[in-house]
């Protein structure tokens, strides 16, 4: 038994692979993928496959990690469309340091907090008016719109007192998450079902 270490080392590969499989956080999985690559390269080299080990080291640490990072960054995001006037209000409130009346900032903070549990980011995209916003939602440029109720229907003032914002999403899963976990009473949630059945993805 002069080569007993080979068997011990070989056990490490399935161990590292299981660690990648059971990791839920995508960023941590990215790091553990690097560990898997290092261990795999070592095992290939020890079994005598120098070329495979070299390929694993080059592809596993550089290419796979870069591609994976790009995939995570571009897919784990919720794009929220808002009106440009909110941007001005945020700036004004930051200047005045008025945290109490900055409802929009609070709402976005709540959203970020909810989606942090799902490792998702919130990206704000600004539009000039309501029409552009709705068109963007239909065109699948954004997942969710978040507008002031008063700018939708200026007459209905009772509703705006309790829920000053209206959030509309076209993704069922996002709607379910927000309905279950968004505890703030600042917004009214609606699910926007798409009316174009021919566009299937």
């Amino acid at each position: 038994m002069t080569d007993s270490y080979i068997y011990i080392i070989s056990v490490l590969l399935p161990l590292a692979a299981c660690m990648v499989l059971f990791q839920v956080n995508p960023y941590h999985a990215l790091v553990i993928r690097g560990i898997l690559g290092a261990i795999a390269a070592m095992i290939y080299a020890i079994w005598g496959a120098a070329d495979v080990a070299l390929t694993e080291a080059l592809v596993g640490t550089m290419l796979a990690i870069t591609l994976y990072a790009i995939a995570v960054r571009s897919s784990m995001v919720m794009r929220v469309g808002v009106l440009t006037e909110e941007l001005q209000e945020i700036d004004e409130n930051i200047l005045k340091d008025d945290r109490v009346h900055n409802l929009f900032g609070q709402l976005i903070t709540d959203l970020r907090k909810v989606f942090q549990n799902y490792y998702m980011r919130i990206e704000l995209i600004f539009y000039q008016d309501i029409k552009e916003l709705d068109q963007a939602l239909i065109d699948r440029e954004i997942h969710t719109t978040c507008v002031r109720s008063s700018s939708l229907e200026p007459d209905n003032l009772d509703e705006t007192e309790t829920q000053p914002y209206q959030t509309k999403t076209r993704v069922k899963r996002l709607y379910n998450i927000m309905k279950n976990e968004l505890s703030s009473s600042k917004t009214m949630l609606t699910y926007f079902s798409e009316t174009k059945p021919e566009e299937k993805h």
């Binding site: 790091v31 690097g34 020890i46 120098a50 080291a57 550089m62 990072a69």
Partner: peptide, 20 residues
């Protein structure tokens, strides 16, 4: 041959982690 692979992994792997 395995030694050459080890040296390449040492330098390229470290560079990859810096990028990461």
């Amino acid at each position: 041959m395995i030694g050459v692979v080890a040296v390449i992994i040492l330098s390229v792997g470290n560079a990859g982690f810096m990028l990461m």
